[in-house]
């Protein structure tokens, strides 16, 4: 559009007015607090004395770098993210492909699959916490009955099992999101493409890898990025399911513990800032490597 005409000018002026309130709110609740968090990370502020503190430079970051618990939290978060998102993607693909078939009662099936997504994370953590109960949990009961384990396991407390438990719950809770996005992409594919492949006698598996997957790849990448970013900031699940134990503590749990439980705003802010930088870095990398433009089509989720 040219920039001179009355119409274009009026529209741009209206756009500025229309955007202003929204941007003001975002500046207040997002930009300003983020800037304050970064600022606090260079101070020794505590929860009790938020307005009397001393600038300590990068001291907090030095401690952070030396704290094995922090690095453990980083590792936990990355492992959790990679494993859960991978499993969710594969499972989501399988379920979406199954639901994409023409079958009676598909609407009902889709609704059933959506249930875990609608359930609050806290609630799903509690539900699974009960199912994973070491003495009365249905999971142990079933595995014992099937002869897969010899004795009941403490899923949420056992250092070797707690991360598995956390991942299992997340996969259960987040796969519907993947399924929905993939299903939406699948349903946009032209049907005659498949009819052509059938006429040509191409094996369905080959069709999937050569036709379906490349075509839904943009939507799949968007879903993966959304899920990855979500997984990197995971908090509720660990907090409720396994508490503060070292084996499952995520970066968010670690940072909140320092901020609120230990009231160390300076140090906790450093951890929070580090988390923010990690997330930002991963976002930029994935978007660049995946050549995905969230502004383009398929980003409507």
């Amino acid at each position: 559009m040219a920039h001179g005409s009355a119409l274009a000018r009026e529209r741009r002026r209206a756009a500025a007015l229309f955007l202003a309130p929204m941007l003001a709110v975002l500046a207040l609740v997002a930009v300003w607090p983020l800037a304050r968090t970064v600022y606090f990370s260079f101070t020794d502020a505590t929860l009790g004395s938020l307005d009397s503190y001393v600038i300590v430079g990068v001291e907090n970051y030095r401690w952070l770098a030396e704290d094995p618990d922090w690095w453990r939290a980083v590792r936990n978060t990355v492992v959790f993210t990679v494993v859960s998102v991978t499993l969710e993607t594969m499972l989501g693909l399988v379920i979406a492909l199954a639901l994409n078939a023409r079958l009676p009662g598909r609407g009902l099936l889709r609704a059933a699959v959506l249930i875990p997504w609608a359930i609050p994370t806290v609630v799903s953590a509690q539900m699974w916490g009960w199912m994973f109960h070491d003495l009365y949990g249905v999971v142990n009961e079933a595995l014992l009955a099937a002869g897969l384990i010899a004795a009941p396991k403490a899923w949420t407390a056992d250092p070797d099992l707690s991360m598995t438990a956390v991942v299992l719950v997340d996969v259960w809770k987040a796969t519907p999101f993947m399924t929905l996005l993939i299903l939406a992409a699948l349903q946009m594919l032209p049907r005659d493409l498949y009819e052509a492949a059938r006429v040509d006698g191409i094996h369905p598996v080959r069709v999937f890898f050569r036709v379906t997957l490349p075509l839904i790849r943009p939507a799949l990448m968007v879903a993966v990025i959304f899920r990855t970013l979500d997984a990197l900031r995971v908090f509720d699940l660990m907090y409720v399911l396994t508490g503060n134990i070292r084996e499952t503590m995520s970066m968010s749990v670690y940072a909140r513990r320092q901020l609120i439980d230990f009231q160390d705003i300076g140090y906790g802010s450093a951890a929070a800032t580090a988390l923010f930088l990690v997330v930002a870095l991963i976002t930029v990398t994935t978007i660049t490597l995946g050549r995905v433009r969230p502004g383009g089509k398929g980003g409507s989720g």
């Binding site: 559009m1 040219a2 920039h3 001179g4 005409s5 009355a6 119409l7 274009a8 009026e10």
Partner: peptide
């Protein structure tokens, strides 16, 4: 007037309307 001309004039009823919505 739904697009703006990059050059030239548009007249309706003898009056230039380039800047009229």
């Amino acid at each position: 007037g739904l697009e703006d001309a990059d050059g030239g004039d548009i007249l309706i009823g003898g009056a230039e309307v380039n800047d009229v919505p």
